[in-house]
Simulated assay, not measured.
Amino acid sequence: MGMSTPDPGRQPERTLLAWRRTALGLIANGTLLLASGHGSSEVRTGLGIVVLVLSLGCWTAVSAVYRRSEGGAVHHLGHDRVLRVAAGLVLVVGLFDLYAVLTK
């Protein structure tokens, strides 16, 4: 009996969808920050733009990693570096939200 490579099944696709949900939540958050600062606060508007750009970058990066890994290559969406970047992004967005709430 030889060793065969494990079949990941649909796990890579489920992981991609989870990352996309995270990015979509961050996009919605950035949109709300942008809307809350429209006409009243340049800082909130700027924070909203930064969050939107980072979120769209997250969406694009995750999609690119998924496309590169199709066809039997090792799937890297669960890689430690990717998880650290996502956790950092969520932390930064949370700090921006905290600022927006405290300065309202």
Score class of each variant (00 low, 15 high):
1 M>F: 07
1 M>K: 13
3 M>D: 07
3 M>P: 01
4 S>I: 09
5 T>N: 13
7 D>Y: 11
7 D>R: 14
8 P>N: 15
10 R>I: 08
11 Q>R: 15
12 P>M: 15
12 P>F: 13
13 E>I: 09
14 R>M: 09
15 T>G: 11
15 T>A: 15
18 A>H: 14
18 A>D: 13
19 W>Y: 12
21 R>L: 07
23 A>L: 03
25 G>N: 13
26 L>V: 02
26 L>T: 02
27 I>R: 12
28 A>E: 14
28 A>T: 10
29 N>W: 02
31 T>Y: 04
32 L>Q: 13
35 A>R: 12
37 G>F: 00
37 G>Y: 00
38 H>R: 11
38 H>W: 05
39 G>W: 00
39 G>F: 00
40 S>I: 05
43 V>G: 00
43 V>Y: 01
45 T>E: 03
46 G>R: 02
48 G>F: 00
49 I>V: 10
49 I>G: 01
52 L>A: 04
54 L>F: 05
56 L>M: 10
56 L>Q: 11
57 G>R: 11
57 G>P: 05
58 C>V: 02
58 C>M: 10
61 A>S: 11
62 V>T: 09
63 S>C: 06
63 S>V: 04
63 S>H: 11
63 S>Y: 08
66 Y>K: 08
66 Y>I: 03
67 R>S: 09
68 R>P: 02
72 G>F: 05
73 A>W: 04
74 V>C: 07
75 H>W: 12
76 H>G: 06
78 G>L: 13
84 R>Y: 06
87 A>C: 05
88 G>V: 02
88 G>H: 04
89 L>K: 06
90 V>T: 08
90 V>R: 05
92 V>D: 03
95 L>V: 04
97 D>L: 05
100 A>R: 02
101 V>M: 05
101 V>Q: 07
102 L>C: 06
103 T>G: 02
104 K>D: 12
104 K>S: 13
104 K>L: 12
